[in-house]
Design a binder for these strands. Structure first.
Lengths: 117, 117
DNA sequence: CAAACAGTTGAAGAATTGTTCAACTGTTAT
DNA sequence: ATAACAGTTGAACAATTCTTCAACTGTTTG
């Protein structure tokens, strides 16, 4: 990872590298962005979010709509909850989930647009 | 995955489920969106894309800026290439990479906005 | 209080993924 | 032609991740 790195000595390359290095967004921000995308990067979770985009739903019903066990749904909902992408409220035995933020949908929709090309 | 599924017989639930099922986006589209996000969901790739957002660069220089081996960079570039997120052109010994599409950046930037809250 | 249902949780196993290493291709310069 | 450099590739290994299963908590109802 040392002798393997740099192109032959070349001022133009060095200048570009330095400029890009300086202008790079904050390392931690990029890390957080990647973490966010990692959560979107699973078809099960995207399907859950798409379902919740249409109606507040309980775990059981999400499972019914997506043909998954309650357990599998619950595991994914925990991840979505920790990422603050969904919120929930209890009503008797049932726990209803909904999107936490409209931002979530705009990101998915932007990606959907990109796909259709 | 059968007896585990549906809430107690309840017309309201059934109606919501049916409506959501009908209105769900196409299964394959959601799958493709998840695949796209999966590619964004790695900090190495996000860093590469962020670097390329600022300047066209060769593999060596990307490695220098991000402190990675050429091999690791190349492996990730292949994934980005296959997803049509970056394009390349050869110039002598060097191969210069750049973003394939401005769409790419708007998705990342939207996510960056979401992060900052 | 006991049964029934909604939901959560942890462990286990399979599958996927990212990096490294070594060997390879392709281009340039001596 | 051969050495040197830029880049790619496949195998191997470690690490992460998703689902299933079984056991658990919490709430309602008989």
């Amino acid at each position: 990872m040392d002798s393997d790195l740099i192109c032959e000595d070349n001022k133009i390359h060095d200048e570009v590298c330095e400029q890009v290095t300086v202008d790079m967004p904050d390392e931690n921000e990029l890390y957080d962005v990647a973490e966010l995308f990692k959560i979107f990067g699973d078809s099960t979770r995207i399907r859950i979010l798409s379902a919740l985009a249409q109606a507040e739903m309980c775990v059981c019903d999400i499972g019914a709509v997506l043909n998954m066990t309650k357990s599998a749904v619950s595991h994914q909902l925990r991840i979505l909850r920790q990422a603050k992408l969904v919120k929930n409220r209890r009503n008797g035995k049932e726990i209803f989930y909904s999107l936490d933020d409209d931002h979530v949908l705009s990101i998915i929709n932007l990606a959907l647009e990109h796909i259709k090309e």
